[in-house]
Amino acid sequence: MSAASRAPLRSDRTTRAAERTRRVRRSAALTAALAATALLVSACGSGGTSGGGGNTNFVTGTDGVATVAQGKRTPAPDLSGKTIAGKTLDVADYKGKVVVLNVWGSWCNPCRAEAKYFAKVSKAYAGKGVQFVGINTRDTSTGAALAFEKDWGITYPSLYDPTGKLLLRFKKGTLNPQAIPSTLILDRDGKVAARSLSALSEERLLKMLKPVVAEK
C-alpha cells in the first residue's frame, strides 16, 4: 500500500478516535447534570428533607429552619473554584468568620424574591465578622448571573457551579442543600450550623444568622 493510500486510513482512524472522545465527554457532562438534578429534586421550590438515615443530629423547627448544636456539627466540604466574575475563591479562607452560603440561580423566582434581603443583611453585617457567599447553579453562562447580582445589589462573591458539582460534595444525612434556593450558616470553625430549604425573608434570615454570630 502506498503512502498516499495509507494517509486517508490514518485520517479516518483519527476522526473516529476524536468522535469517541467527544462522546465520552458528552456522557460525563450528562452524568454530572443528572446527578445535580437528582440532588436538587426540589429545585426552585419551597423545601425538602435531608437524605440519609440514622442520627442526623439536627432539629427542624416549625419555620423550616434546621439547626445543629455546637458540639454536633459537621464541617462543610471543600467549596472552592471560580466565581461568576472569574476570580478564585475558597470558602475555607473565611474560617474565623460566620459564613452565609446561599444557593441560587438567576432563573429562579424564589431566588429573586429573597435577593433584596440578602443584599441588605450582607451589607449590615459586613463589619461584624460575617461573610456572605453565593453558589450560583444551573445557569448555563455567567452573563445572566452577573446581571442578577447587579439588578439586586448583590456585592458579595458567588461561586459558579452550573452542574451542581460543589453541591454534591455535601454528605447525605447532613444539612446538605437540596433545593434552589437553599441557605446554610457556617460557624466560625467552618461547620454547618443551620439550613433553610426555602426562600427567606429578612426576619427568617436574621433568625438563622444571629444565634451563630452570638456564639463564643
Results as ranks from 00 to 15, higher is better:
residue 74 T to V: 03
residue 103 V to L: 14
residue 105 G to R: 01
residue 123 K to N: 10
residue 102 N to A: 05
residue 209 L to I: 05
residue 27 S to R: 08
residue 208 M to P: 02
residue 197 L to Q: 07
residue 104 W to D: 02
residue 24 V to T: 12
residue 83 T to N: 01
residue 46 S to F: 03
residue 22 R to A: 12
residue 186 L to K: 15
residue 107 W to C: 11
residue 107 W to T: 10
residue 137 T to R: 10
residue 176 N to W: 04
residue 6 R to S: 09
residue 106 S to R: 00
residue 156 Y to G: 02
residue 45 G to A: 05
residue 195 R to W: 01
residue 169 R to T: 13
residue 177 P to R: 03
residue 196 S to R: 01
residue 164 G to L: 01
residue 9 L to N: 13
residue 100 V to D: 01
residue 111 C to F: 13
residue 193 A to I: 07
residue 167 L to Y: 13
residue 92 A to R: 00
residue 135 I to T: 14
residue 177 P to I: 09
residue 25 R to T: 08
residue 4 A to P: 04
residue 51 G to M: 01
residue 1 M to Y: 10
residue 77 P to I: 07
residue 183 T to M: 11
residue 7 A to T: 09
residue 72 K to F: 15
residue 65 V to D: 00
residue 148 F to N: 00
residue 7 A to N: 05
residue 123 K to H: 14
residue 79 L to P: 03
residue 98 V to Y: 12
residue 177 P to T: 04
residue 7 A to W: 03
residue 137 T to H: 09
residue 203 E to W: 06
residue 189 D to A: 13
residue 75 P to G: 06
residue 86 G to R: 02
residue 209 L to R: 00
residue 2 S to R: 12
residue 141 S to E: 12
residue 115 A to W: 02
residue 52 G to V: 02
residue 197 L to K: 01
residue 141 S to W: 07
residue 126 A to Q: 11
residue 149 E to V: 14
residue 24 V to D: 14
residue 156 Y to Q: 12
residue 104 W to Q: 05
residue 174 T to Q: 00
residue 139 D to L: 06
residue 67 T to W: 10
residue 106 S to G: 03
residue 36 A to E: 02
residue 112 R to T: 01
residue 53 G to R: 11
residue 49 T to V: 12
residue 86 G to F: 07
residue 33 A to C: 14
residue 1 M to Q: 06
residue 107 W to K: 04
residue 192 V to L: 06
residue 56 T to C: 01
residue 189 D to I: 05
residue 137 T to K: 04
residue 120 K to S: 11
residue 180 I to G: 03
residue 74 T to Y: 11
residue 21 T to F: 04
residue 84 I to A: 05
residue 98 V to I: 05
residue 37 T to M: 08
residue 213 V to W: 11
residue 85 A to T: 15
residue 119 A to M: 04
residue 105 G to Y: 03
residue 148 F to M: 02
residue 114 E to C: 13
residue 88 T to I: 04
residue 173 G to P: 07
residue 188 R to A: 06
residue 81 G to S: 11
residue 81 G to K: 05
residue 207 K to L: 00
residue 28 A to E: 10
residue 129 G to T: 09
residue 2 S to M: 07
residue 8 P to F: 15
residue 91 V to H: 04
residue 52 G to E: 06
residue 179 A to K: 00
residue 210 K to S: 13
residue 126 A to V: 10
residue 173 G to K: 00
residue 209 L to G: 03
residue 182 S to R: 13
residue 71 G to R: 02
residue 50 S to C: 00
residue 122 S to N: 10
residue 106 S to K: 06
residue 58 F to D: 06
residue 173 G to V: 02
